[in-house]
């Protein structure tokens, strides 16, 4: 029998930067509901998976910015984010039909989806290639400090630095490396974050 996780445990795992088992749990529970909802509303399995991923990213961002209200359930949060995302996507498709620009709305939506997937893939490769240049250790350190917003003590402990100051100093060096990289790629802001 798979372990069930409480919302507090999931939040703690996300903040701790190691939520693999919790992600599996969310996939096994909430993803099924989201998938059923999207399939019921003319979506596909792959679209349901995309929407679920976006909802989990939204949860992570909310939790890591300490904005997630534990009075609300994670399951409910994910489902409502997914439902809203799907409604927005469906409205976009309907608007296209109403304007009479295209007739095959679903076909277009699918094409749109595949196009987005292709763009996403290119995008992903670019980001991964760029980050690879600062080295594996710097990448890990900056992910902990910038994305997970971990305190330097925790980072030092995880990454084997002698203390928080050493982690802080290494963090600074890594960030300078990344800033130089960003300065060398001025188009980055327009291409990656538009």
């Amino acid at each position: 029998m798979k372990k069930r996780f409480s919302d507090q445990e999931i939040v703690a795992a996300i903040q701790g930067g190691n939520a693999d088992r919790e992600l599996q749990f969310l996939y096994d529970t909430t993803q099924k509901k989201i998938r059923a909802y999207i399939l019921r509303n003319n979506g596909s399995i792959s679209e349901a998976q995309d929407i679920f991923q976006d909802a989990v990213v939204a949860l992570f961002q909310k939790v890591l910015k300490r904005e997630f209200d534990l009075q609300k359930s994670i399951d409910g949060f994910l489902f409502s984010v997914a439902r809203n995302a799907w409604i927005t996507r469906a409205k976009r498709i309907n608007r296209t039909v109403n304007n009479g620009i295209a007739m095959a709305s679903q076909k277009m939506a699918n094409q749109d989806h595949y196009l987005n997937q292709t763009i996403d893939k290119e995008h992903r490769e670019k980001v991964l290639q760029l980050l690879d240049r600062i080295g594996e250790r710097c990448k890990e350190l900056l992910t902990y400090s910038v994305f997970y917003r971990m305190p330097m003590e925790e980072i030092a402990h995880r990454m084997g630095f002698s203390g928080a100051n050493a982690a802080k100093s290494q963090n600074y060096k890594c960030k300078q490396k990344l800033i130089r990289l960003v300065n060398d790629h001025q188009h980055l802001k327009t291409t990656l974050f538009k």
Binding site: Q53, V56, V57, F60, R124, V127, L128, L130, L131, K139, L142, T143, V146, F147, Y148, K175, L178, I179, L181, V182, L188, K189, L192, F193
Partner: peptide, 16 residues
């Protein structure tokens, strides 16, 4: 710095 942070966040989201 903002762009660098966005890049790191983007990377983390992709990994996720």
């Amino acid at each position: 710095t903002q762009t660098a942070h966005q890049l790191v966040e983007k990377h983390a989201v992709l990994m996720l």
